[in-house]
Nucleic acid binder design. Structure first.
Lengths: 202, 202
DNA sequence: ACTTGTTTTAAACACTTGTTTAATTTCTGT
DNA sequence: ACAGAAATTAAACAAGTGTTTAAAACAAGT
């Protein structure tokens, strides 16, 4: 824990860590306070309620989660390169934030956060023009005909699931941490190759 | 709720429903009791504790979750047919139990269920001989060289994720229920084609 | 040193949690 | 009809929950 952080930031950092690993209903305000090394009342002093603090963390997490997509797709690259780099970046990012995919998808399911406009995040991706670009490539016959939403589902499945199912895979297939990491790298390689082979005609 | 069910079964049914939608830490004993239409004490009278009841539900859910895999892979079919049918069955099954994948993968993450031997379930798949069969096909050059664990991760990603991310997709992509169902069917079609194209050489 | 405002704390509040107790109702065999 | 067992209930228990209160500690300016 950094020394010259403000109290507010210390709480945020602790809250993020606890919320991400245990979820909203899986932890208590006191647990967060303890993780931040301070009194329970301070949490509410700065953030008014557990729910409000959570909303903050959730919104920030969602932005993080979407950023890589937006960043990559805005770049001036060939479609195929965009996909290739996106997969690479997504694996890299989720390796550093392994709990994020699970967190987002779980907490969004319990619809306590309806105040938050999720679609807005995604519109930034839409605005990058990558969809139009893809549809143009489809008309030109350069890529396979596929609905854009289905394509997104296809890509996200292969990028998110391996991180979400970490413990499931480890327990089920009796893998240790190293084995999991190896499978992850392998998986990334195959996913990239498979998706590009399948989508792009040559 | 069926009339001639035993009390025990009514509680189990209610508990399954509540646990699957909210998770262990997301619900209370009283909530389960109320869903079953009876007193809290009865829940503990039959199952001793919330944790023990949960363990029962979890184990049963895990068996359900693994059954389709085992059933399909034990059949006497061509490898390609096995994969094709597995995907079909998995989509069918998860359409009827949309919360199951999320439930299993989430609750396995919070390691409160370490007593349960997860690997045992999977050994049944291993024992079906499908792995050996696949490795043989690899040596014969009929299928692409790929580590079996990576292959499993590849298949499960595409089968589980679309159901786990239901609300995420709906909110993010502003889809309604119908749009989601359409994407799901589309996705299944593409996944099947893509995986088979990629794995099997002809 | 004193005042003013901010930050932090311990304590309390009302309520929910999982679990148990003891009493009551319902069932079952005689 | 009765006795004994099983099923069900209301009530209580201690511990934990989110949140608030009121007092203390701290900081800065005068």
């Amino acid at each position: 824990m950094n020394k010259d952080q403000t109290t507010e930031d210390k709480i945020k950092e602790a809250a993020r860590s606890v919320f991400l690993s245990k979820g909203f209903s899986g932890c208590s305000s006191r647990e967060i306070a303890k993780a931040a090394g301070m009194n329970v009342a301070l949490v509410n002093y700065y953030f008014r309620s557990k729910q409000k603090l959570f909303s903050l963390i959730f919104a920030a997490a969602m932005e993080d989660f979407m950023r890589s997509m937006i960043e990559v797709f805005q770049q001036d690259l060939q479609l195929e390169e965009k996909l290739r780099i996106y997969i690479e970046k997504e694996y890299e990012f989720l390796s550093q934030h392994p709990e994020l995919a699970n967190f987002i998808i779980n907490e969004i399911k319990q619809e306590q956060h309806s105040f938050f406009d999720h679609a807005e995040q995604f519109n930034q991706v839409r605005d990058s023009g990558v969809f139009a670009e893809f549809e143009l490539a489809q008309e030109r016959g350069e890529v396979r005909k596929i609905d854009i939403l289905t394509l997104i589902l296809l890509i996200l499945s292969n990028c998110h699931y391996p991180f979400m199912a970490k413990n499931f895979m480890k327990e089920m297939l009796s893998m240790d941490d190293h084995g999991y990491q190896v499978s992850l790298q392998e998986h990334k390689k195959f996913v990239t190759e498979m998706l590009i082979n399948y989508l792009f005609k040559r």
